[in-house]
Write a protein that binds this DNA or RNA. Structure first.
Lengths: 238, 238
DNA sequence: CCAAAAGTGTTGCAACTACACCCATGG
DNA sequence: CCATGGGTGTAGTTGCAACACTTTTGG
């Protein structure tokens, strides 16, 4: 039996979406990766596009299926259509396919030429409940600096996503999508520091954040031992 | 006979590229548009993607076929995959198709669901020699503010391209791709003003341009009557 | 009291804005 | 001469980086 109805005309041929799902945990920026069944090959969560499905909707669906989350920050950043994808794919597909009892139809379909549109998502790490799906048996939140080799051109896709994320930072308030509902100021700073890849001066950073008038200080304070407890903030929603 | 080998497997199904080709003429930012044979429907130049062709290569090819230019500034900016495209398409396709003696195969293929990747190109208006291709009989360089209705979602694609162009301006020197080999300072200013959509102070603009140390002043001056002849500049190529 | 967290003050730099003003030159 | 093109000077503003210093507070 086929793993999926690849060749039935349910999906658009030659097109896929891949999601770079960023999370923030233990002061580190993480990416969600999946491991193909019984292999050593890690990939970004991805999927195909239904014949009657918007491209954006496909990305949203993939996100929902893998993380259980909807209504989160998701941005298309680039479409990758390089032929080089195929050549390298052949080896990897064979390794993956052999171990999964793939049918010839499946194999033909998935090995054909593909174009993929990359989306990046910013999620609250704590809210994610990963469902690896039928193709994978394990997942891993990988530190952005220790991702290692990925399936096909997924490493390139990841790098591209990171650059886009950095660019978005200056302009918008995207980053807060990576934080929990409430957070301390040093968590925000630490997040900005890891995304931008450079240290920031505490006093100046706090001043700037507060001057934007987008944060609301909560009554309750953080209770995690230590000496003075830091304040908790949340985003103002007017 | 079919207009093209649409259904033969030469092209990737469901994927196309569209090019927003910007030019600068008479101090106005222009876009190249094509009119479908015998109709009133204007569109952006576009094309399909060969099965063995990179996505970027397809865009380059379209550009070459329509303008005769290669080796010019070309940037992918977004992929449009909205289903809405289809519905409106039906009417328009029928109108277009009827007048062109399209075969049923052609019709089925082109009316199916499509995803298109948008590229924008910056060209030297004077160097372009337009070749409208088999689908069109006329072309027009339309002023960016007077484009009117376009085929399918091409208006949306154009707007998207404009925004991207504005964003690119701050960072890079892209804009010079729109100018001739040599140009006066006020032409550069006028170009920046139309792209950014706001007036700039002459003295400050010139100071900034010159301080970047990217312009080279030419011996020969502009000879176009008037009083004092303005200097000519060109981009330094070190 | 101590250490972590939070906040204030100040200095200096760099970039940009808005204008006022001067010089050059071709007819 | 004068209209156009080209250039200088400067005062005001803003944003930011760097750093020193004070205050608050939980244990």
């Amino acid at each position: 039996m086929a793993l999926n109805n690849y060749a039935t005309g349910e999906w658009m041929p030659g097109i896929s979406v891949d999601c770079v799902i960023f999370g923030f945990h233990e002061n580190q920026l993480k990416v969600l990766t999946l491991r193909f069944n019984q292999t050593d090959i890690w990939s970004l969560p991805g999927g195909f596009v239904g014949v009657q499905e918007d491209l954006d909707a496909a990305a949203k669906r993939v996100l929902l299926e893998r993380t259980g989350l909807s209504d989160i920050y998701l941005e298309q950043f680039h479409t990758f259509g390089c032929l080089k994808r195929i050549q390298e794919a052949k080896k990897q597909h064979k390794e993956v396919g052999d171990k999964m009892g793939r049918t010839q139809d499946d194999y033909d379909w998935i090995s054909s030429r593909f174009i993929t549109t990359g989306y990046f998502a910013l999620v609250d790490y704590e809210k994610v409940v990963v469902n690896v799906g039928a193709m994978s048996d394990t997942y891993s939140w990988k530190d952005i600096h220790e991702v290692g080799e990925l399936f096909l051109d997924h490493s390139e896709i990841l790098q591209f996503a990171l650059e886009q994320l950095r660019l978005s930072l200056d302009i918008t308030l995207v980053a807060f999508n990576l934080l929990t509902e409430t957070f301390t100021m040093s968590e925000v700073q630490s997040l900005y520091e890891t995304i931008l890849g450079k240290p920031l001066v505490r006093t100046n950073f706090q001043r700037k954040m507060l001057s934007m008038d987008i944060l609301e200080r909560i009554e309750k304070k953080y209770t995690g031992g230590a000496h003075k407890a830091p304040y908790l903030y949340r985003l103002k929603r007017p």
